[in-house]
Amino acid sequence: MTNLGKQPAAGGGGLLQIDGLRKAYGDQVILRDLTLSVPEHQCLVLIGASGSGKSTLLRCINLLEQVDDGTILLQGNDITDPRVDADTVRAQVGIVFQAFNLFPHMSVLDNITLAPRRVHGIDRGTAERQAREMLDRVGLADKAKARPDDLSGGQQQRVAIARALVNKPLLMLFDEVTSALDPELVGEVLTLLTDLKHDGTTMLVATHEMAFAREVADQVVFLADGSIAEAGPPSQVMDHPSDPRTQKFLRRMSF
């Protein structure tokens, strides 16, 4: 096992380091020989057409899917090693889904305290205090006792973000967290993501929001045909794309 304090290698390394990742469903190859790295405190934005494998990549990093080849290093440790305890890894990597996936039978507060109490063994009082602080941070201090179904989509998504953040993950994954929202609710969630970035959260964001990508991303990665077609700072990838697929995709997105 790689040692924890290992320095990032030149041109790679970082909090998250993916090398030669391959993932297929049956004989349909979704990701092939994919390599990317996310340095600490940076925001990497994944863009790409629908079906290009953005969600699949995030699910692999969260070990919700088994990879078919390659390695995923988190702080230098290979989390795809079958001897690694997947639950421990998941507890360190937060993920927020497009469809919120709050637990409908629990209050907002219970949704947020579930993992701290049942996974991290934090006592109820402390967990609830932390949960309320987190709710305050996402601007929903008054909704602790509400049921998820009684909240608007944007509020539900902010609760989902609070639920992931409260575990103080090393890395946050966001999977198109605004695409199930009405246009007027998208802003509140993106603002929150922007705040998180400024607070130094390391994040990997799959999104179709190009303006957001341009504003927040340290690095933009364009996925096509199962691998990275183009990567670099937003000014380069989004304003001067060199790959024809990127050019076509960006033209479509801007109309």
Binding site: R90, F97, L114
Partner: peptide, 12 residues
């Protein structure tokens, strides 16, 4: 997706 959400939080 409920199961996935719970597992992603680290619940076994």
């Amino acid at each position: 997706s409920q199961r996935a959400a719970a597992r992603s939080l680290g619940l076994n």
